[in-house]
Simulated assay, not measured.
Amino acid sequence: MLKKAAVLVASCGALMAGCGTDVDSNNNNEEIVSNLIKAGFPADDIMVVGDAVYVGRDAQVSLEASREMLQSDHGTQEQYRTTNLVSTGVTKICVNPTAAFNSYSRLSQGLDLAIGNYNSLGLSFTLARGPTTGCSANITAQTMSGAGGSAGFPSGGLPYGVINIGTGLQSYSVDVNEHVITHEIGHTIGFRHSDYYNRAISCGGSATNEGSAGVGAILINGTPATATVGGSIMNSCFRSTESGEWTSSDITALNVLY
């Protein structure tokens, strides 16, 4: 998680003249504000008073500290979440495959492995393959054409209710199926694409920014602000060599949120 001690270089209680310890130029202040926004601070929580930049109305942030916020010891891939997340009241999410989904052996195996990925982390919820009992939320796993997947984002404290997995994945390895299904479940609990701001990082081609998509794109504390090929299960596009396993920053992001 974010090391607050590195960020909050001076606590002044109120915005009083002369309370800051670091004085930056106007140009530096522009970079500080930019870095804070990239680090996930809401723009309306950032204030420039005189020659100093504050967050939370009483914490001055130096240029060095703002740059440090964009660094991390947890891998090389950033993580973003939506405004909406799954509530703490959801403790068991049941993933219910359709008969058509179960007819594809690698999709079915991939689902079991994806469920195992989440359950291995000791999160605030567990996943279970349905049909089963005791579910506080349900997700239907169904098929679509092609070799990819789609899903939606949480609403009302519940995960999105459907993941669509392409039947073309049957021709890929079980690990790739595990990767794609883990990815789509990630969306249902509130994860954006790690490279949403430039899909070309994992997909190639020209740079494309997905924008906020009306659901927000909030940087998760403890994850860096750079994206790399293969750096996260939540990258926009997958490769035929995917292992299906979490990266270190995937684990960090999940533990921060859940």
Rank of each mutant, 00 (worst) to 15 (best):
M144C: 14
V180W: 09
L85I: 10
T132K: 02
S232A: 14
N198S: 14
R106Q: 14
A17H: 10
L15M: 15
F125L: 07
P159N: 09
T98D: 03
I189Y: 03
D250L: 02
S120L: 10
A253G: 07
D195E: 08
F153S: 00
Q142N: 10
I93V: 04
D45A: 11
G20F: 07
E242L: 12
A99L: 09
E245T: 14
P131D: 15
S150W: 13
R81V: 05
I163C: 02
R129N: 13
G148A: 14
N255K: 07
F153C: 01
L257I: 10
Q71C: 02
D45N: 10
A65L: 09
T188I: 06
D250F: 00
N27W: 13
Q77H: 03
H193I: 02
F101K: 05
S87H: 03
L219I: 05
A39L: 08
S155N: 06
M144T: 15
G186V: 11
T140C: 00
S171C: 10
E64W: 08
T167L: 06
G204E: 15
M16D: 09
Q77Y: 02
T247E: 12
V48K: 09
Q142S: 12
F191K: 00
N235V: 00
P154I: 09
A17R: 15
T21N: 14
I185L: 15
A141Q: 02
V174S: 11
R57H: 13
L219W: 04
A217F: 06
T223R: 03
S212L: 11
R239S: 15
V86Q: 00
S25L: 08
L15C: 12
S150Q: 11
A141E: 01
V53D: 04
R129P: 08
T226Q: 12
T76A: 01
R192W: 03
V7P: 05
I115A: 07
A10T: 14
T88R: 00
G116K: 12
G56P: 07
G20H: 11
L107V: 08
G166Q: 08
